[in-house]
Simulated assay, not measured.
Amino acid sequence: MRRDRATDGKPIIRLTSGLQIGEGNLAAGLGLIALALALACLSTGLGSTETGMLDLLHSLAGGAIADADAYALWNVRLPRIVLGFMAGWSVALAGAMLQSLARNPLADPGLFGLSQGSITMIMLLLVFFPAASKLLVAFAAVGGGLAVALLLIGLVGGERSSGLAILLMGIAIETMLSALASVLLLYTPAETSYALSDWLAGSLFHADWQLIGTFAPLFCVTPIAIFLIGRALSAYDLGNDMAMALGEPIARSRPLVLGFAVLLSSAAVTAVGPLTFLGVLAPQLAGYVSPAVGRARLFLSALTGGILVVGADALTRGIGADIPIPIGLALTLIGVPLFVVALRLQALRKMHSH
């Protein structure tokens, strides 16, 4: 491992295996990890029960704490923090993948129709089979997302098709599925419609260790996926023709990227409901913190997504612990102002650079 400079003059760390890491990206990654840990520590102390990080450390050391404190920490707050981070990480990672695939900063699982495919299948299942198990709901979510992905590939065509064509077709499919979801909400019984509306707002209220255990295997695979897919997405960022000129097998890698994005978004939708706009928001904020490509961009985007969801959940519990604010709404309240400020600062930075 040695320090070097990339072709654009930026300092990098070059590993003996040939891989290179930008020093700015490395510093940003470490800073985001520290921020995630700080938010998690802060979040353990937010809620109606007076307990927090000191009690958690005391419990981990084998000390005794009150039953109410133990329940609040181990059964409510920690599951929400862990599941929120995992869901935010997954949606943001899927969004970053799809943006490279489409070469469009607005692409995300929702705009491609992948999330809506999962949502619609879950809604159909819960309308006709209200007692469906969590496992069946998860399979329905993956099936709906995969169906949309296969439809996209089938309608758009082969490897010469552009990312813009995939995005536009995804928007058309998403619009049609949204209309179907609206019909289901309008014409189902009132109790079912209310439950579906509540779920569509996004929620961490049902977070528990069993759900985390179901989500964990996919989450643990994501670092491997980042390593394997990152190089292909660096080529996609240059356009299809350039990617093929560099030897990227688009006919094989594009379905793989779409399929993995489906798995990530479907798992998040099943666990917490749709996290609207996060797939667009997190990669853009990560790009403002530290511009990156390939693996570094995927990793920083995923970290930012996890931080945003944990931060939004902490905000809801800090402002009104007794008021159940859906995580989707809280994410909009905290994320959109950050997004606007980041875009404004980025515009000012470009103006001063010229």
Rank of each mutant, 00 (worst) to 15 (best):
I166C: 05
G305P: 11
G145P: 08
A172D: 03
A141C: 12
G22C: 12
A102N: 12
S59G: 08
A261H: 00
L101I: 02
R80M: 15
I122T: 13
L152F: 05
S115L: 07
E248C: 14
S234E: 10
V183Y: 08
V91F: 09
I21M: 14
G311L: 13
V148M: 09
V127N: 08
R254A: 07
L106C: 13
T188M: 11
Y288M: 09
S301I: 00
S118R: 05
T49V: 15
Y187I: 14
A66I: 08
G18E: 06
I323G: 02
L46W: 03
E174A: 05
H206C: 00
I212K: 02
G157T: 07
G47N: 09
W209R: 06
V280Q: 11
A216V: 12
R5N: 10
T222Y: 00
L298G: 06
S118Y: 04
L57F: 13
I166Q: 03
S90N: 10
S266K: 00
I65R: 08
L98G: 10
S266R: 02
P283V: 01
F85R: 08
A243D: 07
G230K: 05
G84T: 02
P283Q: 02
L101A: 04
L111M: 12
I226K: 01
I33A: 15
H352P: 03
M242A: 14
G279I: 02
L343F: 10
M121V: 11
L308Q: 06
Y288P: 01
L168E: 09
L285H: 04
G22F: 07
G318F: 07
N240S: 13
G335V: 05
S197R: 07
A87F: 02
A296D: 12
A321P: 06
M121C: 14
